[in-house]
Structures are given as structure tokens and as C-alpha cells.
Amino acid sequence: MHEEIIFSGFGGQGALFAGQLLAYAALDCGLHVTWIPSYGPEMRGGTAHCTVVIADEPIGSPLVRRPASVIALNLPSFEKYEPLVKHGGVLVYNSSLIDRRPGRADIRYVPIPANDIAEALGNVRQANVVLLGGYLAATGILPLAAVETALDRHLPGRQRRFLESNKAALQRGAACVLEAVPAAPAEQTANPAAAAD
């Protein structure tokens, strides 16, 4: 097993934290893991991304050119990483904010109206966790419960009041994928709200 995942979005959308949750969950599952962020002035209002590598043997490079999976929280991330996803890989994306037709036939697209789901749950800032739930459901790389445990253990003190809503966001994201019929690349609509289930 050697899985590379890039989480990417606007600074403040929680791409880095979603990656950390996955890293904590991987550690709890007894796997090797690295988490490496983009850092620097570009984080202020620009894009922020992190790379997580999960493997069953010690990890060499913490970076990859062509990740197995990408979780795109916004349009610039979708545009940047769509061409880079490895052949046969997965692109999970926030269809509330990304109105694009899939451009490749050799990867799997997993659209999730993450902002709409998070907003319906009462906190649009949990869109990152919705997407993480969708990613886990789409790939089965780690059990959802491992990330719930990571939330229990690692949600910062000032955010504890959001613990249960984060778990709900995770489950709703997963449910969104499991309930969808993924036969063909999902249809995109001009109206993002209409894509929300």
C-alpha cells in the first residue's frame, strides 16, 4: 500500500486540517504516514495545500508529482491538480464551488456539494470534513471510524463544541458518495445548489 493524497483549497477552507485528520487516523491504524504543507506568504488569502502519504512501509519522499488522489476544495485547485492525478486515481471535489466538466476518462471523479452539505448542517467551514468523508467512502483507504477517533483526540480545545457536527459532516460526505450511482462521470449542473442532494 502506498497512497498519496493532496488536499488543496483557499487558505481558511481547512485543507491542511483535513490532511492532518487523515494523517492522525493513519497513525492510529498502525500505518506509516507523512504530512507536508505548502507554507509561506501564499497562504494569506491564496491557495493552501498539503500532501499526505500513507504506506505500509517507511516513506521516502513526502512529495509526489502525480498523486493517487486529490481533494479539491476550490476551482483553482481542481484546475491545477486535475491533469496531475495518477492514471486510475481519484479526484474528489467540492461541486458547490466547482462547476467544471470532467476532462479525463482515466480517473474517477467524485463530486460532492460540500459547502451545501456543510451549510445544511449549520457550519459551512466543515466542508473540508465533508470532502474527507467522501474521499474515505470513495476509496475505502481507512475506516470512517478511524477519522472519527482522530477528531475525538485532535480537534483543538476551542473547536470541541464542533465535535459532533464534524462527525456528522464526515458521515454526510461519505453517505453522499455511497448513495450516488457512480456509473458514468457525474453530471455537472450550472447551478451548484441543484447538485446538492
Partner: peptide, 10 residues
């Protein structure tokens, strides 16, 4: 180096 300083690992 900066990457070792900024990355996380068990």
C-alpha cells in the same frame, strides 16, 4: 531544512 521543520510524521 524547511520541509523537515514543517512536515509531520509519527
Amino acid at each position: 531544512d524547511g520541509s523537515l521543520g514543517q512536515m509531520m510524521e509519527p
